[in-house]
Design a protein around this nucleic acid. Structure first.
Length: 226
DNA sequence: TGCCAGGCCGGGT
DNA sequence: ACCCGGCATGGC
């Protein structure tokens, strides 16, 4: 089967199983950006606690984040882990937004996707996945998000080479799917749902995965095994 | 009780 | 261009 058909087949099976995910779980574009940074190598349940703290204190805005002391910010986002690093990253994010678009996200949205991505990548704390998450889920741009689940699921199903880079995996999807933000949005959300339930690190749960995405036989690949 | 979670950075080859 | 240690909490 061609790669495009494989990817659409996967998508349809996942969608049929899980239904629409309604991503990203946030109440504003800025909250998406905050969540994208806080969830770096961190369980979302921990991010929720951190965001709840910020909301409770009325600090979930660009202006408030820019005004608050890094020290205090770190204390509030403590549950999300790496809190000292992430506090700096949130500060860098709002500093970038202020300088780049006067903190106006509607204006930010008007720029070309590739240009925006390059600019976001210059910000300390924003790497490929975070940049794509922001582009897709905060700004509605058709930028496919590749995360650990995406890589693991694709590798276990032998859809990509073992040492595929972020860029290669992203290309695999974008070259074989309609370049549509709605599809990219739903697809990544479905992959995360699949990963959380059936494709965890060092756990060969694939065989009990009810989705039967593609053949997943005896040659199980374990990722990131130390 | 150790392993894992929706990465990224900086310094080293 | 890779490779690796560091960053840290909370759930199972």
């Amino acid at each position: 089967m061609g790669k495009a058909r494989t990817l659409m087949s996967m998508y349809k099976k996942l969608y049929a199983h899980f239904g629409p995910r309604h991503w990203w779980p946030a109440k504003s574009a800025f909250e998406v950006m905050v969540g994208a940074i806080l969830t770096q190598n961190t369980a979302w349940s921990n991010v929720e606690k951190a965001i709840a703290n910020l909301r409770r204190e009325g600090l979930l805005s660009q202006k408030k984040i820019s005004q608050i002391k890094t020290r205090k910010l770190a204390a509030l986002i403590r549950p999300s882990g790496f809190y000292n690093e992430k506090a700096k990253k949130l500060k860098e994010l709002v500093r970038f937004l202020a300088g780049f678009c006067g903190s106006n996200l509607r204006k930010l949205r008007q720029h070309d996707t590739a240009y925006l991505r390059k600019e976001f990548l210059r910000v300390h704390g924003i790497g490929p996945e975070t940049a794509d998450s922001i582009l897709l889920y905060a700004l509605g741009k058709a930028s496919f998000v590749v995360d650990a689940y995406t890589k693991r699921i694709c590798m276990r199903h032998k859809l990509i080479p073992e040492h595929a880079t972020y860029h290669q995996i992203q290309e695999f999807f974008t070259d074989n799917l309609l370049k549509d933000a709605k599809i990219f949005n739903e697809y990544h959300a479905l992959i995360v749902e699949t990963g959380k339930n059936y494709c965890k690190k060092n756990k060969p749960l694939c065989k009990i995965c009810p989705l039967r995405l593609v053949k997943c036989g005896k040659n199980m690949v374990y990722l990131n095994k130390k």
